[in-house]
């Protein structure tokens, strides 16, 4: 398991991660969901020992990554966001090198090389140089190199970025398989659908802070039965907030001159009332969209912005 407590990473005045805490359990996938620049990769960097935390502690299977770095890292498998492979080596040579980096050798290494190349569908291309591979094949090989030593804790930093749909499905299956085998998986992504479908538990991170965490059900519960209503047009913020201030079923999430976002209980049945209230607030409505409760709507509710912004 991974235990992160009050993790903080600063670069001068810039706070990349500001007091993050979470626990990822064995045999489960813990998702770290957040937009680009939220602090996901920095958190992964601190857990993998690549970065030294400014404050806080990170433990991997009980070993502090700063004080017992070698022990902690020995049980870690890291699949970095960028494809970290030797393009001038073959797939087999890459897997062999990274296996040796984790102390494997001899027949065990050979057996593991065959296993991981087979499960990633690259066994028949084992002798081909990586620079002849497609992006999806490189992603799969990147994953193979991360699991060749059978890690008990697996860190996956946005492993599906830029991957074709077929390879993506295959990769996600592989990740799920790892968790089923008892591996503790920490999975970062900015794809909401991926997080929803893959993760047993989730933490939503923004600006270096975790703004919500729990199981998918727990997070959705934070939204209650509320839908997210996005209205385009022209608005006066004060009038809008005044109109909805006494309505417990409506909460103004964000509002600017051209767009308002409202959190509304059972929005579909309240649309006529909503439109009437907007008219009373001297708003001009050009478009209206209703979204069911989701991680994205929760993210918008919590941060006032969309996940992909």
């Amino acid at each position: 398991m991974i235990e992160v407590a009050q993790l903080r990473k600063e670069y001068g005045d810039l706070v990349a991660v500001g007091g993050v805490s979470f626990t990822a359990e064995t045999g489960a996938i813990f998702g770290l969901l957040g937009p680009n620049g939220a602090g996901k990769t920095t958190t992964i960097g601190c857990i993998s020992g690549l970065l030294e935390p400014t404050a806080g502690t990170v433990r991997v299977r009980g070993h502090d990554v700063v004080r017992e770095g070698t022990r902690a890292k020995a049980s870690l498998g890291v699949v970095p966001q960028e494809i970290a492979l030797y393009e001038d080596l073959s797939a087999g040579e890459n897997v062999r090198f990274w296996g040796q980096a984790y102390g494997l050798g001899g027949s065990k290494l050979r057996a593991r090389m065959t296993d991981v190349l087979e499960i990633t569908g690259l066994l028949d291309r084992a002798d081909d140089r990586v620079d002849q591979f497609s992006g999806g094949m490189k992603r799969r090989l990147n994953f193979a190199c991360g699991i060749v030593h059978e890690p008990q804790v697996l860190l996956l930093d946005e492993p599906t970025v830029g991957v074709d749909p077929q390879s993506r499905v295959r990769l996600l299956d592989l990740v799920r398989e790892q968790a089923n085998q008892g591996v503790c998986v920490l999975y970062t992504t900015h794809y909401m659908e991926e997080a929803q479908s893959m993760c047993d538990r989730l933490a939503i991170i923004d600006h270096g802070h975790i703004i919500a965490q729990g199981s998918l059900e727990e997070l959705q519960a934070q939204m209650g039965e509320r839908d997210l209503v996005r209205v385009s047009g022209s608005f006066d913020e004060n009038d809008l907030r005044r109109v909805f201030s006494r309505d417990e079923d409506v909460e103004v999430v964000t509002v600017d001159d051209a767009q308002a976002t409202l959190s509304v209980r059972q929005a579909s049945s309240k649309l006529p009332t909503l439109l009437a209230a907007l008219t009373r607030a001297d708003s001009e409505v050009r478009d209206i969209t209703v979204s069911q409760p989701s991680l994205e709507s929760l993210f918008i509710k919590l941060t006032g912005k969309e996940l992909r912004e």
């Binding site: 993998s48 070698t70 022990r71 870690l76 970095p80 970290a84 492979l85 030797y86 980096a101």
Partner: peptide, 13 residues
Amino acid sequence: SQGTLRRVIATPQ
């Protein structure tokens, strides 16, 4: 640039 240096640092070596 190919990320292998960072990956090496993440190993126990």
